[in-house]
Design a protein around this nucleic acid. Structure first.
Lengths: 304, 304
DNA sequence: CATCTTTATACTCCGATTGAGCATATGCGT
DNA sequence: ACGCATATGCTCAATCGGAGTATAAAGATG
């Protein structure tokens, strides 16, 4: 209360959701075999939390994280065994490019839709939702008391857009939490879990947090940059955005918005390997980077 | 890297930005005399970080925090003396109502514009900006090398809307950071600090973070609720939003937006003490609370 | 070479949103 | 009764944003 209390001794842990987009697929860096996000201790030698995170992610991937953003800090009792050792875990979202041969070989990049199949709506509504999630979530809602039932039904309806509303791609975390609460994921000791690769502990939850944050952010901050190569076509840029959002967007409107914001400029070159008419190559305008870092961007992903 | 490293021993601290709106003024809870935000240790007894925060804020203010949101977690070397004891400080934003006589008397509520006079643009652009901040920030920019100079000028121009753009009320943190970087605030050991009450350590920075977050949030989440009494007039609601944003909004458009979103419903009663025609009293629609908590709200505060 | 396929790019249309102002209603004080 | 102050309802125009149409420029195919 007074700010003078003696804090109890605890340990610090850093967890990273490191994202790249390769060939139009959103990928996340994992520890191969372990089914876990990379994580490491926060050491007194680190200058700051972010410095600590950067240090060991760069050591592992071999190239620096451009954009780093704090996600969330946990210290829930049920994370650790319940013993005396409390751990404060600070999770981060980091963006990078998956360049071939940069790190020490054994990198575990994986499409994040392996973990959340229902989040990929680029080819229309995924069949899993209608076929598996919807009936099982309905059953879960119905099994509750009348009081709770309406609340559950409403939450399910909103999260999965069952009420006819447009799919809201930002609700990744809410959807995962619903599935967890309904006991439909292996992390919640589900007898018959729903499709989707599991992760150690609460790592899949952290990943969901990162996806949700990134999906929200690309709409108003120019963070796609960090995920793109030096030059690219407008369609490649669009595909990257679509990969992250898990949604298709109107091509012409996408170009209109990108161009009217003057985020990019032509390099002068063009690439013929698009299958049709060659596309002009673009690069991000360096001046805009500073400006937009603070001011914001727009992308044609409607907010519900 | 492997997630198995032994984390170093450190301490946990919780810092709260507790906000209320009283008589159309945004107020923040401080430790009287200390010039500090309330803060307390994270104890192993706490179930989670949020639970710990709620526990002692409720004990102090006497009424519960409705909305609590994590702001940021720091562990910078320069926060503590530089000794061995590293502290991980987790800061939170909490919303409540400043009800009279609820807590043990000595509560230190203060208008947050005491700390950031330049953030209150409700009566037009504050004179401090043109009279003090602008010349001194310009001087700071000019004093740099040609390379840095342009970048500084641009940052100043964006943060304080010197380029003719509309005032962006969400840039509270960026503005404070600029002033800090320019050595114009007492926390940065300024010889001749700019107006604005200082705080202990980095607490004013944390407060700026909270203000910025809240200003951004009220535009798309129904968080004003937590700050309003059970029933209120639309003008009172508008005044609260304006107090937080530090901006005036168009009255008719505000009402249009509020009503078309069906966030509120009439209580049936009306209050005559508005000075003119009596105003209808409204309350928030409980059903909408659940719905909007996830879906979002709109407010007529244009985003730059 | 004509034609088809494929992608790129330019332009149009229309409804929804939103900023701004005008007009009317309804209380109070004098 | 009259003016004042606020509440509340309505209009108008500019813009934005979603969706479609039309044209351009390559390679592939007969």
């Amino acid at each position: 209360m007074t700010g003078q209390g003696k804090p109890g001794a605890i340990a610090g842990e850093l967890i990273a959701v490191v994202v790249a987009v390769t060939d139009g697929e959103p990928r996340v860096l994992t520890i191969p075999g372990a089914g876990a996000l990379p994580s490491g201790p926060f050491e007194p030698a680190h200058r700051s939390l972010q410095a600590g995170l950067r240090a060991w992610v760069e050591r592992q991937t071999g190239h620096p994280l451009g954009y780093v953003e704090q996600l969330y800090t946990f210290a829930d009792r049920d994370r650790d065994g319940g013993g005396d050792a409390r751990v404060i875990a600070v999770s981060y979202l980091g963006l990078t490019r998956e360049e071939p041969g940069a790190g020490p070989g054994e990198e575990g990049w994986r499409t994040w839709y392996d973990y959340f199949p229902w989040e990929d709506c680029r080819g229309g509504p995924p069949a899993v939702i209608e076929g598996v999630l919807k009936p099982r979530l309905r059953a879960w809602a119905t099994s509750a008391s009348a009081e709770q039932r309406r609340a559950r039904e409403q939450r399910v309806a909103i999260a999965f857009s069952l009420d006819g509303a447009a799919w809201n791609e930002e609700l990744t975390l809410q959807r995962y939490e619903l599935l967890y609460e309904a006991g439909l994921v292996p992390e919640a000791a589900a007898a018959e879990p729903v499709p989707g690769r599991r992760m150690q502990g609460d790592h899949r939850r952290i990943l969901a947090t990162g996806i949700a944050r990134l999906r929200a952010k690309i709409k108003y901050r120019p963070v796609v940059f960090e995920l793109m190569p030096a030059s690219f076509t407008l369609l490649q840029l669009q595909r990257s955005v679509e990969a992250l959002a898990g949604l298709r967007v109107h091509k012409q409107n996408f170009r209109r918005l990108i161009e009217q914001q003057e985020l990019v400029e032509e390099t002068g070159a063009s690439t013929p390997d698009t299958g049709g008419r060659p596309a002009k190559l673009f690069r991000f305008r360096p001046a805009v980077l500073i400006e937009r870092a603070v001011a914001g961007t727009k992308l044609p992903l409607t907010r519900g």
